[in-house]
Nucleic acid binder design. Sequence first.
DNA 1: TTAAAGTTTCAGTAATTATTGAAACTTATT
DNA 2: AATAAGTTTCAATAATTACTGAAACTTTAA
Lengths: 168, 168
Amino acid sequence: MEFNEAKAQFLQTWGALGSQWGINKTMAQIHALLMISPDSLSMEDVMEELQISRGNASMNLRGLIDWGIVYKEYKPGERREYFKADQDVDSLARKIAVERSKREIKPALRVLEGVKNFDETDESPEALKFKMKTQELHDFVNKADTMLEKIVNQKENWITKTIMKLMT
Amino acid sequence: MEFNEAKAQFLQTWGALGSQWGINKTMAQIHALLMISPDSLSMEDVMEELQISRGNASMNLRGLIDWGIVYKEYKPGERREYFKADQDVDSLARKIAVERSKREIKPALRVLEGVKNFDETDESPEALKFKMKTQELHDFVNKADTMLEKIVNQKENWITKTIMKLMT
DNA sequence: TTAAAGTTTCAGTAATTATTGAAACTTATT
DNA sequence: AATAAGTTTCAATAATTACTGAAACTTTAA
């Protein structure tokens, strides 16, 4: 296997993994590309490598910057912007976890809170079961979220550290 | 807020959460519906409640059974099949975690393994960086997967137990 | 062995999500 | 202040993914 083949397969796989985990394919691929590039890349470079349009590149680069995992870089004397991926895999994962908690888990928790005690007077079996189950789910999602926070808040190398703790 | 409103909102939210986490909306909604139902439901019931077609109901119920989180039930004397959700939220999450690891993480790991040592002789800066980064990512994904396994293998109430351990 | 009750499959269609490409906008340079 | 280099936006379109509905299939029971 030579370099370009390996690279294509990697970009492909990382893109697929991304879309399974809620990040769109192109965004994941751009990120992968920036991660393996020794130097930062211009938007043109990204468009060229991944064969995507300017609009697509622009939107997804912005998305990555919003996630806080890609930075703009300005080269002295150069007009155009260059992009660079956060090189630390741990910090990458930490940021993703924090963002997804904020964007998805926290809002869902709020809905569950609202819904679980909807009408104190309704004591039909359906209503009781509903209250019970939504309470349970709320507690569960809440615990999972708390766990995520704890894992993520170990300063560096959190995965290793957490595995260590779990080794008992 | 009265029951039906709360229920609709819950089904809605759980469906959205599902699709963000890689389970399709209808599948997540059927599952949610079965979880809050005091009795098991027939396919007709599910179709009726969620206003979906027979084909859709059939496929997604099968999907849920494949995930191992919904069971068929046969009522004595009755011809039709009834469906029932696993009632234990912990075991639900555990099964999802195990399945997703099997279906998505493990295959991605295999690709990363294949790709990270593609051509021993290529020592261009691009190739070196690529090797380094894919190695790093492989190690990371592998550790995350191991962590998931460890968390999941604590027999019951794994979230609570894991949080306890992390309390240090 | 036939009919009735129920379930599955899948081609066609609908809904959703991602992408393009060109125009509008911004910023720097002469 | 006009031009050039670069970036962003967004309506139109393409690609993907999910859903329908009817036909084919299976199982049970008369």
